[in-house]
Amino acid sequence: DEVTIHLGDKTIRVDGLDKELLEILKELARRGADEEELRKEIERWER
């Protein structure tokens, strides 16, 4: 499953996201997290 996250004018595509992680990323994005913060969160989950 590829998920596309839209952040204002930026788009991040991620393969096979965990549903819980997806919810966390959506919440972070709502709070104004930037792409770098979201990537760090994704990397934390992948470990």
Results as ranks from 00 to 15, higher is better:
Asp1Cys: 14
Asp1Lys: 10
Glu2Tyr: 14
Val3Ser: 13
Val3Lys: 09
Val3Glu: 12
Val3Trp: 15
Val3Gly: 11
Thr4Ser: 10
Thr4Asp: 10
Ile5Asn: 03
His6Ala: 10
Leu7Met: 07
Leu7Gln: 04
Leu7Lys: 02
Gly8Ser: 12
Gly8Gln: 11
Gly8His: 09
Gly8Tyr: 04
Asp9Gly: 08
Lys10Glu: 07
Thr11Glu: 11
Ile12Val: 07
Ile12Trp: 02
Ile12His: 03
Ile12Leu: 09
Arg13Tyr: 10
Arg13Asn: 14
Arg13Trp: 12
Val14Ala: 06
Val14Asn: 02
Val14Ile: 12
Gly16His: 13
Gly16Thr: 11
Gly16Asp: 08
Leu17His: 06
Leu17Asp: 02
Leu17Thr: 05
Leu17Val: 10
Asp18Tyr: 05
Asp18Asn: 08
Asp18Gly: 08
Lys19Asp: 09
Glu20Thr: 11
Glu20Cys: 11
Glu20Asp: 11
Glu20Trp: 11
Leu21Tyr: 01
Leu21Ser: 01
Leu21Phe: 04
Leu22Glu: 02
Leu22Phe: 10
Leu22Asn: 02
Leu22Thr: 05
Glu23Asn: 10
Glu23Tyr: 14
Glu23Ala: 13
Glu23Pro: 01
Ile24Cys: 03
Ile24Met: 09
Ile24Thr: 06
Ile24Gln: 05
Leu25Tyr: 01
Leu25Thr: 00
Lys26Arg: 15
Lys26Gly: 03
Lys26Met: 15
Lys26Thr: 09
Glu27Met: 15
Glu27Lys: 09
Glu27Ala: 14
Glu27Phe: 11
Leu28Phe: 05
Ala29Val: 12
Ala29Met: 15
Ala29Asn: 04
Arg30Thr: 04
Arg30Lys: 08
Arg31His: 05
Arg31Cys: 06
Arg31Gln: 08
Arg31Thr: 05
Arg31Phe: 05
Arg31Asp: 04
Gly32Arg: 02
Gly32Ala: 01
Gly32Cys: 02
Gly32Lys: 02
Ala33Thr: 03
Asp34Ala: 09
Asp34Tyr: 03
Asp34Cys: 03
Glu35Val: 11
Glu36Arg: 08
Glu36Gly: 08
Glu36Ala: 13
Glu36Tyr: 15
Glu37Asn: 03
Glu37Val: 12
Leu38Phe: 08
Leu38Thr: 01
Arg39Gln: 08
Lys40Arg: 13
Lys40Ser: 09
Lys40Met: 09
Lys40Cys: 03
Glu41Trp: 15
Glu41Pro: 00
Glu41Asp: 00
Ile42Gln: 03
Ile42Asp: 00
Glu43Thr: 04
Glu43Asp: 08
Glu43Tyr: 06
Glu43Ala: 05
Arg44Val: 05
Arg44Phe: 08
Trp45Lys: 01
Trp45Asp: 00
Trp45Leu: 02
Trp45Val: 01
Trp45Phe: 05
Glu46Lys: 10
Glu46Thr: 13
Arg47Lys: 11
Arg47Pro: 05
Arg47His: 13
